[in-house]
Simulated assay, not measured.
Amino acid sequence: MQLYYSETLSPRKACAVAHNVNAELDFVFVDLGRGEQATEEFGRLNPNHKVPVLVDGPHSLWESTAIMCRLAQITGSDLWPTDDRQAEVIRWLTWDALQFTRFGVELYFRNLIGPHVGLGPPEPDAVREAQTGFRKSAAILDAHLANADWAVDSTPTIADFALGAALPYAVGAAIPFEEFPNISHWYARLCALRGWLEPFPKR
């Protein structure tokens, strides 16, 4: 089994989960700068030409959330629960994609990626708008975490890995999550999990 990745946000989630659940797989680095994801060969693994991709024999699975689920499933990890918590995990995954990490990704792209791909410095108004959106969603998560250690119940799930995706880049991306004490405490717990701080294999 192989996990195709690059050192960017979505592959980070999959790689971190892979380490956390001790998945037996090979990591395959895809050099986005050299356009390796744009090849016809890679397109047969993922027609979207994006990473991550999990390849298991003749089967390939793309989209980081699906890969996180699959890695937890095949290793028997409770990161993807099979009881009543599953619907709650799906709720937070969906909300995160549309709200919390959506704005984190925008700040990550504008402040860290855009200047390096020829887009010039970020537009201040666009950054402020994204920060406003982030703060609104962060207030909801912060209130939830006032009475919970993790997004769902008392143990971590893939929802926590998704929610934390952009936060390792918070300083450079100007993501103001440290304004929210409960999120900060939760993120410290996330950082203590195996694979979170160093999810990418050494090359």
Rank of each mutant, 00 (worst) to 15 (best):
D142E: 03
Y108A: 06
A159W: 15
T94Q: 12
F42R: 07
V117W: 07
L71C: 03
H49L: 00
L93I: 06
T65A: 13
I74H: 07
P122N: 04
D78M: 06
N46M: 11
T157F: 14
G118T: 05
D96L: 01
W62Q: 00
G76T: 00
S154I: 09
W150I: 12
T94A: 14
F29I: 04
Q73M: 11
G35Y: 02
I158M: 10
G76H: 07
N48Q: 14
A166T: 15
R110T: 15
E40V: 14
L119T: 03
P124Y: 06
Q99V: 12
V152C: 14
A66R: 04
L45M: 04
E41C: 10
R91V: 08
E36P: 09
E36N: 11
A166S: 15
S154P: 08
L112H: 04
G43T: 07
D96Y: 01
V89C: 01
R91F: 07
F100R: 02
I113F: 09
L145P: 01
G120H: 12
A72W: 13
T75N: 08
A138H: 09
D31A: 01
F103G: 07
W62D: 03
Y108F: 15
S60G: 06
E40L: 09
V89P: 01
P81E: 02
N147D: 06
R85T: 00
T65L: 04
L79Q: 10
F27M: 07
L32D: 01
